[in-house]
Design a protein around this nucleic acid. Structure first.
Length: 208
DNA sequence: AGAGTGATCATG
DNA sequence: ATGATCACTCTC
């Protein structure tokens, strides 16, 4: 019985760039969470870039540095996971370098490994269909078992939470759709910036 | 379209 | 200490 061949983990340098470039480059890569020895994994199909200190939609707007958002100030490749609306977790991948609080929100996955477990993790009936199992930032965290306890993990060497390289080059721009970010209407002129990226025609993105 | 849910944050 | 807010989801 040959061991399953896994793809290589993304190195530090992959993450150490601007959040718009990282948001595009993460599309098509595989997010993995190992739970009790089982791999739960999905292909990233939707992301949003958060631009840090000048960005009115970002948790680090005006240089805010709090207990909650501390991970955003760490080096690229760390996870920033926060809890919101009293119910949901959202996961970000920190971009850039230590001291520059920018990040990419993971908004949707195409489930590929551990799908039965992911279904058990999801409470709502909407999680039954494959295309709505991970089609939103809160849904994918619930399905993958990602919570606040993962915030600050360094995905370059964490044994449980990491991202594997599935493509050497980012998708060409012709394959990526761009829109305003979701749920940031409060952010005034930043609400309409084209900072959401998703794979065209992919059925697993949010806002079906 | 509205409810649910509680950590988080800025005020005072 | 307190009150408003929230990078959401589900069901109506």
């Amino acid at each position: 019985m040959p061991a399953t061949v896994h793809h290589p983990r993304l190195p530090r340098t992959f993450y150490q760039r601007g959040s718009v470039m990282l948001a595009r480059a993460l599309l098509g890569q595989k997010l993995v969470h190992v739970v009790d020895g089982e791999r739960l994994a999905g292909i990233i199909v939707e992301t949003e870039a958060y631009l840090g200190i000048p960005d009115k939609a970002a948790h680090t707007y005006r240089g805010r540095h709090t207990q909650r958002n501390h991970a955003m100030w760490c080096d690229g490749g760390h996870a920033y996971v926060y809890f919101t609306y009293g119910m949901h977790h959202c996961m970000n991948v920190v971009a850039g370098h230590e001291g520059d609080p920018i990040a990419v929100l993971i908004r949707a996955l195409e489930p590929v490994e551990g799908i039965d477990t992911m279904r058990l993790n999801r409470t709502a009936s909407s999680g039954a269909a494959l295309t709505t199992l991970c089609s939103g930032p809160g849904k994918l965290c619930q399905a993958m078992g990602i919570t606040r306890r993962h915030t600050g993990r360094d995905m370059v060497n964490d044994p449980e939470l990491f991202i594997e390289r599935m493509r050497q080059r980012p998708y060409p721009a012709s394959r990526i759709a761009v829109s305003a970010r979701i749920g940031v209407a409060y952010a005034e002129e930043w609400a309409d910036e084209p900072l959401r990226f998703y794979l065209k025609d992919n059925p697993h993105v949010s806002k079906r």
